[in-house]
C-alpha cells in the first residue's frame, strides 16, 4: 500500500517537475527559435496531454498551475491565464471522456484548439474590445503561426507523457 502511494506521489511530482521545466524552456530568452515571429505554447500542450492521460480533474489542476506560471511573466492581470488554462485542461479532459478517443490526433486537435482559445481570448480582451489598430493582424499573424508551431510539437509531449503515465501507472499496479 505504501509503495503504491509512493509511486502515485512520484507520478504527480514528475508531472509538476515537467511543468516547471516546460515553463522555463518556454520563457528562457533565445532558447526556442521563433516560427514567423511566434513561439509555441508549450504549457497548453502540457495541460492538454495531462488531461488526456489523467482525466479532467488532473487537467483542471495542472491547467491552474500552468496558467499561474504563465501569469507570473504575462503582462495581463494576474489570474487571466490561470482561468483560461483551467478551462483548457477541463475541456480537454471532458472531451476525451465523452467525445474523443485518447490518441495522438485528439491530442493535436485539442492542443491546437487550446492554443486558439487562449490566443483568441487574449485578442478579444487585449485588443478587439479596445478597438486597437491592426487588430486583425493578430488573428492571422500571431494566432495562426502559434497554432501551427504548437501542433508540430504536440507529438513530442504526447509520446513523452504517454510513456510517463504508462510507466508510472504500471508501477502502481
Amino acid at each position: 500500500m505504501r509503495a503504491i502511494l509512493k509511486n502515485i506521489k512520484i507520478k504527480w511530482v514528475a508531472y509538476a517537475l515537467e511543468m516547471v521545466i516546460i515553463f522555463i524552456l518556454q520563457n528562457t530568452p533565445g532558447l526556442i527559435p521563433s516560427f514567423l515571429g511566434q513561439k509555441p505554447m508549450l504549457l497548453v500542450i502540457f495541460a492538454v496531454s495531462i488531461a488526456i492521460f489523467e482525466g479532467d480533474v488532473a487537467g483542471v489542476s495542472f491547467g491552474i498551475a500552468a496558467g499561474a506560471l504563465m501569469d507570473l511573466t504575462a503582462s495581463s492581470v494576474f489570474g487571466f491565464y490561470t482561468l483560461i488554462m483551467m478551462l483548457v485542461g477541463y475541456a480537454a479532459g471532458i472531451c476525451v471522456i465523452y467525445l474523443m478517443r485518447n490518441n495522438l490526433v485528439s491530442c493535436i486537435v485539442l492542443s491546437t484548439a487550446g492554443v486558439f482559445f487562449l490566443s483568441f481570448v487574449q485578442w478579444l480582451f487585449e485588443f478587439a474590445i479596445w478597438g486597437d489598430a491592426g487588430t486583425w493582424y493578430f488573428l492571422y499573424g500571431v494566432i495562426l503561426p502559434r497554432m501551427i508551431y504548437s501542433a508540430a510539437l504536440t507529438p513530442v509531449a504526447y509520446y513523452f507523457n504517454r510513456s510517463l503515465a504508462a510507466h508510472l501507472s504500471s508501477d502502481t499496479e
Binding site: 479532467d56 491552474i64 492581470v77 489570474g79 487571466f80 471532458i94
Partner: peptide, 25 residues
C-alpha cells in the same frame, strides 16, 4: 458533466481566480 467533481472544482476555482484577478487589477 455537471454533477462531476471536476465541474464543481472548475466553478469554485473560477470564483477564486476572478477574486484574485480583481485584487491584482
Amino acid at each position: 458533466i455537471f454533477k462531476g467533481r471536476s465541474f464543481k472544482i472548475v466553478i469554485a476555482s473560477t470564483i477564486i481566480i476572478i477574486g484574485i484577478m480583481m485584487y491584482s487589477a
